[in-house]
Each structure stands twice: as C-alpha cells, then as structure tokens.
Simulated assay, not measured.
Amino acid sequence: MRLVIAQCSVDYAGRLNAHLPLATRLLVHKADGSLLVHSDGGSYKPLNWMSPPCSLTTEIPDDEAIADGVVEQWRVTHGKSGDTLLVRIHEIIHDSAHELGVDPGLIKDGVEADLQRLLADQVGVIGDGLTLVRREFPTAIGPVDLLLRNPEGGTIAVEVKRRGDIDGVEQLTRYLELLGRDPHLAPVTGVFAAQEIKPQARVLATDRGIRCVTLDYDEMKGIDSGAPRLF
C-alpha cells in the first residue's frame, strides 16, 4: 500500500464528471490497483475513488499544467468502464509504501452463530426446565436454530436473529408448520429470539402465537452491559 499526502486536484470522468479543487489530501493506492482520495474529515468515506479492476500510470504534465505548478500527474483507468481519475499533484508532502500482507478478514462478534451457541448453553433464558434437543434441527426447508424439549410436553422451536424482522417470523412460521406434523415433536410452539425485534415483527409473531424473547448478548457472555436495571 502506498500512502501519499499531497497538494493536489482531482478530476473524475466517466458516467459523471466531478472535480476536486487544489487542496491537501491523502492518496491511498492499494495493491489491488484501487485509489482512494481522502480529506481530513468525512469519517471513512473517500472524497473520490476508483475501484478495481483499474490501473495507475504516472504521466509527465504538459506545459500548461507545469505552468500551473503541477509536478506529477496520475491517471487511474478502470479496466471495464474506461472511467478515469486524473490526479494533478502540485507538491508531495509525504510518500511511503507498506507491505500489509494477506488480511484474514473481519471476525464479527455477536453474529447469529454466536447468539445461537450461547443460547444453546443457556436455554433457561427461554424458560425454566427446558432442555436442548439439538442445534440446527433439520426440516425439509432448512434447519431451525434450536429445538428444545418442554418438560410439560411437546417441543419449542427457536429462531435466533441479531435483528428480528418480519422475514424471520415468516421463516419460523414455516418451520413450525412442518415440525408440527411429527407426532414425536408435537405440540410444537415457537420462540423468536433476537437482540432487537422490530415492532412489526413482534405484532406478527404475537398474532401467530409465537413468543418473542429479547436477548442481551453481553449478559449471556457474562459481561455487564452497563444498562440501567430496575432490579
């Protein structure tokens, strides 16, 4: 990765035209060929960029550009669309290159698989006396996240989401219809468990006899979330 802080102007030509007047900016040229133009603001979003496949070539400025103070010129061309990003550099303040190696990718904490695993170990969050039959219990249209045994008889199908919406309720409804056909599992009730459940999803679930449970991920991990409690 090459990092260049420079006084520059930038012109984009393609599906639309855009111009960034002369200013001090950070130019990030990545190993995949992409170029990002950043200012000291705007959070993570670049002012302009060119995504791969693209190539960067360094050009000698013409006489007019040299007269305007341009010392170096970059042209980044997209390999498919032909769009171009032209960077006219007036002064290079910093220029460094760094080998970052292969990135392992983002490992997310609190994804649905983590919630499912924690809930499988803490089925008491759903109700007292319940026992786990199986995670990823198979049905003809895919596995339901958790199947629990109810000590009072029957089973409970649990669908786990980070953010529960109407689609999740519909998915659980289909699972319940299929599982209820098995006399060894019936009667089967449903629980829709999520860190956040949208109001429309809660209304639909209640209308279909599905119980909603809001999960506190930090509490399930044994971490005090700091949220105020009544008791």
Rank of each mutant, 00 (worst) to 15 (best):
V125N: 01
G164K: 10
T155D: 04
T173E: 15
T214F: 01
N48C: 12
L119K: 08
A194L: 04
A31N: 10
F231A: 11
G69D: 04
V37T: 03
L26E: 07
N150H: 15
K221I: 04
E72L: 04
E136W: 01
I93P: 08
M1P: 00
M50L: 11
V28Y: 01
I156K: 09
R75M: 08
E59V: 12
I5A: 12
I156N: 05
A65S: 09
V70Y: 00
R202Q: 14
S43G: 15
G226C: 02
P104H: 01
K45Q: 13
L86C: 05
H98V: 11
A18H: 13
D224A: 06
V111S: 10
S39R: 11
G164Q: 03
V102E: 15
V188F: 07
G168F: 13
S96R: 03
G110C: 01
D95H: 02
A140Y: 10
H78D: 07
P143Y: 00
D32P: 11
G180F: 01
Q195M: 15
R117T: 12
A23Y: 02
L85T: 03
D165H: 13
K80M: 12
R2F: 06
Q7T: 15
L20F: 12
W74C: 02
Q200I: 04
P228E: 11
V158R: 15
T139N: 12
D11K: 13
C54G: 05
V191H: 07
L56S: 06
L85V: 04
H29N: 03
M50H: 02
A65H: 14
L179I: 02
E159V: 11
I197C: 06
P52M: 12
D62E: 08
R163Q: 15
T139F: 12
G41A: 15
V158Y: 09
E64Y: 09
G222M: 04
A157K: 07
L115N: 07
I197E: 05
G33C: 09
Q7W: 15
A18I: 02
W49T: 10
T206E: 11
G129V: 09
L148P: 00
D128S: 14
A65F: 13
G129K: 05
D68Y: 10
V133L: 11
Q7A: 14
D83P: 12
V144L: 03
V144Y: 06
A140G: 06
V87E: 01
T155Q: 13
R88E: 00
H98W: 02
G14S: 10
P228C: 03
E112L: 00
D145Q: 12
V76G: 02
D218C: 06
I197D: 01
